[in-house]
Amino acid sequence: MEIARHWRGRAARYRLEGQRSRSTGEVRFPPQPPALGETDETWEAFALSGRGEIYSFSVIRQAPDGYEGFAPYPVALVRLAEGPLVTAQLTDCAEDDLAVGTPVEMVTRKLVDTGEDGVLVYGYKFRPTL
């Protein structure tokens, strides 16, 4: 069950693939199934640029199971250049480097190791723009 869930999200997780409305051009992330009245053609896959800025952030010191090795680590709401607001971990930075409005870019990193007999889960994080 766990593996299937990670696998289904790989395009969004690995490369920040969202959706764009064919009629209005609206961009959304994460991708969602068609709503009532919509078809598979209403939204098309759309690769987000990965550029954005910090909308807000916090620092996790009491990490959930599986994430202890990363603590303390910052998480942020990132306003992407195309409009969507996404929640993600920040990486390659210290708390003092961060402020609302800091430009960030997407990188694909290891999110969690599910154990010696489990998969390694990869996905997007953000870091201050290089």
């Binding site: 690995y14 990486t91 990188v107 694909t108 990193r109 290891k110 390694l120 990869y122 994080k125």
Partner: peptide, 13 residues
């Protein structure tokens, strides 16, 4: 390598 980096993540970048 940082704690979230490995051969796969570095290759991607």
């Amino acid at each position: 390598p940082g704690p979230d980096e490995d051969t796969i993540t570095m290759s991607i970048e």
